[in-house]
């Protein structure tokens, strides 16, 4: 039997912690396309993802979950649409200590929502740091609807990353149930 693959995309602004997030749960060393940063303005870390990060979780013999991390820098955004194709859901990762990236995070979120109507959630990363904004303040700053989940996260901790992935999967399951219920209602109305 052919192995099925599904993918979840992890996106967000530059230096939000996407690579670390995938690294924390991937069973393989993350296939990373990191390059040393040349632009002085962006030199808050030594290297950045330029094409994608790629992590893998084998579920069983015939199902594999891929985690794709998008490049955070805007000039690589041509990769986003390619990576989003066929995704099961997506996670928007935001650095809680850098309000200057919130506007960009919102713009990325809107872009991915437009790519595909799949479930998503927002993670407020680096919540362990002193400067971290409160998640509810971030919700308002990002203009998230109350129905959108925003979860505190520490991308370097496996337990925290697991919680985020599980919440997304619960959301996907719920959406399936809602869709089915809607479909049943429509069928009832027709008959």
């Amino acid at each position: 039997m052919q192995t099925q693959t599904v993918k979840i995309v992890v996106t967000g602004p530059f230096n939000a912690g996407k690579t670390e997030f995938i690294r924390s749960v991937s069973e393989i060393d993350v296939v990373s396309t990191e390059k040393r940063i040349s632009a002085t303005a962006e030199k808050i870390k030594e290297s950045t993802t330029v094409a994608m990060d790629f992590g893998r979780i084998t579920v069983d013999n015939d199902l594999v979950l891929f985690l794709f991390g998008t490049p955070g820098q805007k000039r690589f955004d041509f990769m986003w649409e390619i990576l989003s194709e066929g995704m099961l859901g997506f996670i928007v990762m935001v650095d809680s200590t850098r309000p200057e990236t919130f506007r960009e995070a919102r713009s990325i979120l809107e872009t991915f929502k437009a790519y595909a109507p799949t479930p998503y959630l927002v993670t407020a990363n680096k919540q362990d740091l002193y400067d971290a904004w409160d998640t509810e303040d971030m919700r308002l700053a990002l203009r998230l609807d109350p129905s959108v989940k925003i979860l505190p996260c520490e991308a370097t901790k496996k337990s925290s990353v697991k919680r985020v992935l599980l919440e997304l999967l619960y959301g996907i399951l719920k959406e399936m149930d809602d869709n089915e219920a809607r479909q049943n209602n429509q069928e009832d109305e027709i008959s």
């Binding site: 749960v25 084998t58 579920v59 199902l63 979950l65 099961l88 599980l166 999967l169 619960y170």
Partner: peptide
């Protein structure tokens, strides 16, 4: 499929 993913995670 999603339930299998949940169990695995």
């Amino acid at each position: 499929l999603v339930k299998r993913l949940i169990d695995r995670i």
